[in-house]
Amino acid sequence: MKRVLLAGALLFAGAAAHADAIDTLKAFVSDVKTGRASFTQVVTSPDGAKKKSSNGSFEFARPNRFRFAYAKPYEQLIVGDGQKIWLHDPDLNQVTVRPMGEALGSTPAALLAGSNLDKDFTLKALPDEGGLQWVLATPRQKDSGFQSVKVAFRAKQLAAVEIVDSFGQRSRLDFTQVEANASLPADRFRFTPPPGADVLSQ
Rank of each mutant, 00 (worst) to 15 (best):
M1W: 12
K2C: 15
V4E: 07
L5Y: 08
L5D: 04
G8Y: 08
G8E: 05
A9K: 03
L10K: 00
F12C: 14
G14V: 14
A15Y: 01
A15W: 01
A15R: 00
A15I: 03
A17N: 11
A19T: 07
I22E: 01
I22D: 01
D23A: 10
L25D: 01
L25T: 10
L25E: 04
K26I: 03
A27Q: 09
A27F: 00
S30R: 12
K33H: 13
G35A: 10
A37T: 07
A37E: 07
F39Y: 13
V43A: 08
V43R: 06
P46V: 05
D47N: 08
G48K: 01
A49Q: 04
K51T: 13
K52N: 15
S53E: 03
N55E: 09
N55V: 03
G56D: 01
G56S: 07
G56K: 02
E59I: 00
E59R: 11
E59H: 09
A61L: 06
A61W: 02
R62M: 08
P63I: 12
N64M: 10
N64P: 09
R65E: 12
R67G: 08
F68P: 03
F68E: 01
A69S: 07
A69Q: 02
Y70W: 04
A71Y: 04
A71C: 07
A71F: 04
Y74A: 15
Y74V: 15
E75K: 09
Q76T: 09
I78M: 15
D81T: 02
I85K: 02
W86D: 05
D91A: 13
N93G: 10
N93I: 08
N93D: 12
V97D: 00
R98S: 14
P99N: 08
M100R: 13
M100K: 11
T107C: 01
P108A: 07
P108V: 04
A109Q: 02
L112K: 06
L112V: 12
S115G: 05
N116A: 11
K119G: 06
D120Y: 03
D120H: 03
F121H: 06
K124D: 04
L126N: 03
P127E: 09
D128K: 15
G130D: 06
A137D: 04
A137T: 04
T138P: 08
P139I: 03
R140G: 11
Q141M: 07
D143K: 14
D143T: 11
S144Y: 02
S144A: 12
F146N: 01
Q147A: 10
S148E: 10
S148H: 04
S148Y: 00
V149Y: 03
V149P: 00
V149C: 02
K150W: 00
F153E: 00
K156F: 04
Q157E: 06
Q157T: 12
L158R: 02
A160S: 15
E162N: 08
V164T: 15
V164M: 13
D165F: 09
D165E: 09
R170Q: 15
R170W: 13
R170E: 12
F175C: 10
T176R: 14
T176A: 15
Q177H: 15
V178E: 03
V178N: 05
V178R: 06
A182N: 02
S183P: 00
L184M: 06
L184P: 05
P185N: 10
A186L: 13
D187Q: 13
D187L: 09
F189P: 08
R190S: 14
S201T: 15
S201L: 15
Q202P: 10
Q202M: 13
Q202Y: 13
